[in-house]
């Protein structure tokens, strides 16, 4: 079954399926890019490709369980690649929740339009940062600013890039 009912049962929203291994490859690719891009382009550090992948597949799959498990998986991998200063679970928790929210929202809204993708990505980026700061403050006792202009710009940049990345990822869908 490729269709799902929204919570009000008013409209059908399509659940997209992807080619075999597409999610895994996209995830690994995002992690590799995330790990290697900033080496050559320092400003690229502002981008969070694993987050974009999490949001995209969450919005597309529209299954909260799948979304949160995928988010957890991507987040834990990102934690693992982030060195000993980042404990396992920091990005894991944040991306788990973002994956859950993205798939929950994706099940209720049409997220195919670029404007919707831009807005949702910006909102999820801010939420993701908020979750990380919350985790750092509460669990790690590391005081971090909740939000500043840099993060606001980063949210806009990630949302802008996401529009194009999502178009590329759309090509991985099964027809």
């Amino acid at each position: 079954m490729n269709d799902a009912f929204d919570i009000r049962g008013e409209s059908h929203i399509e659940v997209h399926k992807f080619r075999a291994g597409a999610i895994i490859i996209a995830t690994l690719l995002a992690l590799v890019i995330q790990a290697s891009f900033p080496l050559h382009f320092a400003r690229a550090a502002v981008l969070d490709f694993p987050l974009l992948v999490t949001i995209y597949f969450g919005l597309s799959r529209r299954n909260p369980s799948t979304g949160l498990l995928l988010g957890m998986f991507i987040g834990l991998l990102q934690d693992s690649l982030s060195g000993p200063t980042v404990p396992l679970g920091l990005y894991g928790i944040a991306k788990t929740i973002i994956g859950y929210l993205a798939s929950s929202i994706g099940a209720r809204l049409d997220t195919e339009h670029p404007a919707a993708r831009f807005a949702l990505t910006a909102a999820f980026f801010v939420a993701h940062q908020g979750l990380i700061v919350l985790t750092r403050r509460i669990l790690l006792a590391q005081p971090e600013p909740w939000f500043n202009m840099h993060l606001f710009l980063a949210a806009l940049v990630n949302a802008f890039v996401a529009v194009f990345v999502f178009l590329l990822l759309d090509r991985l869908r099964k027809n």
Partner: peptide, 24 residues
């Protein structure tokens, strides 16, 4: 509610994992 329960379980699991790692 299954996904919500799963979310809660996964979050708790990771928080515990964090707690095991962190040493103040």
């Amino acid at each position: 509610h299954k996904s919500l329960v799963l979310l809660t379980g996964v979050i708790i699991l990771q928080v515990l994992m964090l707690a095991v790692q962190i040493k103040r």
